[in-house]
């Protein structure tokens, strides 16, 4: 397949994608695709790209390889260069929706770090476990999906939700025995140190979980965790090996939510963490797990997450 094509082919394909085909254009398009194998290949590629663009992370967040470190301090959410990533749908864990809604007095101001109908996104294919540097996010196999009609699961808000697929990630040495499906996000809080540097700020994480109808004998737990990390811990790779609990400055977890068997209901979970003054990064960890020992397996069939919100707000210490 060649890499350059007649301009008219591109014009026709774009007109189709834009919904601008005239009657004549439509006939020309059909004739072209009928007669040219190369045109058909390019037509397919256009549609692959069209679908892929809607699945990729926010393009504004993509960082050219080699420049991630230099830019990391200037952005809330950073993405690892993905060119070297394993094949697969690669989109980011959390959206770039940052609503800096400072207002009111300094005692009350709040920053919404994450919010959206479904503004959490992840790769559908492979990557390692916890993020290892300030420019990364990671987790197990997941996918972003729309409404799941046959199963009766609709997004809690918006049109998309996260589907937990497996309890392992590409390249995991021994996936057997895994039964937690995890997603992570590492967030650089240093630009907001003035908000929490006196120990007077709290981050709050909330999200909604759901599952399609599953056997009565099975139980599924949901967990949301927050870890406050210093820069050294966040960037030395130790979190990649699961050391976030041991090496964090502070952590909080809510693992009390168990999924019900009604796909029409979303179950909300919340957790909050007071940030130590020397916090540099916040690690967000959300998971679903097989709660019964005898049901444990690496796959998850219909378990979803939506409407994730993360806010940073002032709540002064009691004196």
């Amino acid at each position: 397949m060649k890499t350059e094509y007649p301009r008219g082919w591109h014009a026709l394909f774009n007109a189709a994608l834009n919904g601008e085909l005239t009657e004549v254009d439509s006939e020309r398009l059909a004739a072209l695709l009928q007669s040219s194998s190369e045109a058909r290949q390019l037509w397919f590629l256009y549609h692959d790209n069209e679908a892929g663009l809607a699945e990729l992370p926010s393009p504004a967040e993509l960082i050219p390889q080699g420049t991630a470190e230099a830019k990391a301090s200037s952005r809330w959410f950073q993405w690892r260069p993905l060119a070297a990533a394993a094949a697969g749908l690669v989109i980011g864990l959390f959206s770039a929706t940052v609503l800096a809604s400072y207002a009111m007095s300094s005692q009350e101001k709040t920053v919404t770090l994450l919010r959206g109908g479904f503004r959490i996104r992840t790769r559908a294919f492979g990557h390692r476990r916890a993020p290892a540097s300030r420019a990364s996010r990671s987790g197990d196999y997941t996918a972003v999906v729309g409404e799941q009609t046959p199963q009766g699961v609709k997004p809690a808000s918006g049109r998309r939700m996260l589907h937990f697929l497996r309890a392992d990630y590409e390249g995991k040495a021994q996936p057997e025995g895994s039964y937690f499906s995890d997603v992570y996000r590492l967030i650089d809080l240093r630009p907001y140190r003035a908000t929490y540097g006196d120990g007077g700020a709290v981050v709050q994480l909330s999200g909604s979980f759901n599952a399609f109808h599953f056997p009565e004998s099975e139980r599924y737990g949901c967990s949301m965790s927050l870890y406050a990390l210093d820069a050294a811990t966040a960037t030395n790779g130790s979190t990649r090996h699961g050391a976030e609990l041991r090496e964090s400055l502070a952590m909080a977890r809510n693992s009390r939510v168990m999924l019900d068997r009604d796909p029409k209901t979303w179950q909300r979970s919340n957790v909050e963490l007071r940030l130590p003054p020397n916090t540099d990064f916040l690690l967000v960890h959300i998971s679903v797990d097989h709660a019964n020992r005898d049901q444990r397996r690496v796959t998850f069939d219909g378990h979803y997450l939506d409407d994730v919100r993360l806010t940073l707000g002032r709540r002064p210490l009691l004196r």
Binding site: L45, D48, N49, G52, L53, E55, L56, P59, L62, I63, P64, Q65, P81, L82, A83, A85, A86, A87, G88, L89, V90, F125
Partner: peptide
């Protein structure tokens, strides 16, 4: 999947 990986590099 291979085309998505290539697409991501191209978007950058």
């Amino acid at each position: 999947p291979a085309r998505v990986t290539a697409l991501q590099a191209c978007v950058e």
